[in-house]
């Protein structure tokens, strides 16, 4: 009798439990669903009367691929992709390099350098923006992707902590053994530690790849020649929300948002496992 009762309550709590998650997921997805619906609206402006568009259409997507002077989505996508790839390579390298040096190796400047990094991380990045702009201008790198890539990746070494935390979990004895066998540090780095740290590499790659897709502040500042075909996706879409343009481009904005999110979501699905392991491997020991 008693056993049976327990089973009953179990079943009902399981249902309740899953319904609760469902409700939460529903709340979380409302804006995303709205984004998706609005992107299929036949009306170009913002609809604030109903949740679902009154008339459905794929016009938003169609016009997105027929560039005019404002919207040059395919071009933006290519631009951002190039910037993102370059940023991704450089940032990942920098982060892993710094993380390895500070985690596996021991040298006298290690602590002071790490303390410097902590201090530098406390300054608001927004503030340095104007100065960064002038530094780039000095090197004649404004309005160029090289400049943008540098902004995204040059200081990436400062974000080494999570990767360092992960490397800290690599058994020290393994490295020592390799050293005794006469392995150079470079070989230990490339052939031992990196292959053992797939999750954190993936985590770093995703994170640095995403930055150019999300950032609109720095990009707006650096690509300031007003030439639409040179924009990244983020500024291109952001400019569509200009007062004069909003009414004609809101649906395209939503469509663009959806198109950007799709590859990122896929990236997340594939990498989810690594991502979680990478984050936590680093955060746990951090």
């Amino acid at each position: 009798m008693k056993v049976k009762k327990m089973k009953d309550s179990r079943l009902s709590t399981i249902i309740l439990h899953n319904v609760l998650i469902g409700v939460l997921a529903f709340i979380w997805l409302i804006p995303i669903v709205w984004l998706l619906c609005t992107s299929f609206s036949a009306y170009t402006g913002m609809n604030s009367k109903t949740f679902f568009p009154e008339k459905w259409s794929i016009q938003g997507y169609v016009s997105l691929f027929h560039p005019d002077t404002v919207a040059q989505f395919p071009q933006w996508f290519i631009n951002t992709f190039i910037v993102a790839c370059a940023t991704c390579v450089i940032s990942t390298m920098f982060v892993l390099m710094v993380a390895y040096a500070t985690s596996i190796m021991r040298f006298p400047m290690r602590k002071p350098l790490m303390n410097m990094a902590v201090i530098l991380n406390l300054f608001p990045g927004m503030l340095a923006m104007i100065a960064v702009y002038f530094v780039l201008k000095t090197f004649n790198l404004t309005n160029s992707y090289a400049g943008l890539i540098m902004v995204y990746s040059a200081s990436s070494g400062l974000g080494y902590l999570i990767a360092k935390g992960f490397f800290d979990t690599v058994p020290r004895a393994l490295c020592e053994a390799a050293r005794i066998d006469g392995c150079s540090e470079a070989r230990i780095f490339f052939q031992m530690v990196i292959p053992m740290s797939r999750p954190i590499v993936v985590y770093t790659v995703i994170n640095s790849f995403l930055a150019p897709w999300m950032d609109f502040v720095f990009a707006k500042m650096i690509l300031n020649a007003g030439v639409s075909s040179k924009y990244t996706v983020a500024i291109g879409l952001y400019k569509m929300l200009d007062k004069q343009l909003l009414n004609d481009y809101f649906t395209q904005f939503c469509a663009g948002g959806v198109l950007v999110s799709i590859p990122i979501s896929i990236l997340f699905i594939i990498m989810q496992k690594f991502y979680v392991e990478g984050i936590t491997g680093g955060a746990v020991k951090g």
Binding site: K137, T142, N143, M221, N224, A225, G226, V227, K239
Partner: peptide
């Protein structure tokens, strides 16, 4: 001659950020 987009109402903000880089 290259043509860029900058609305009249916000021209000042963009120009004054860096006059030398403005159109």
């Amino acid at each position: 001659i290259s043509i860029g987009v900058e609305s009249e109402s916000s021209a000042k903000d963009t120009v004054l950020t860096d006059i030398e880089a403005a159109a």
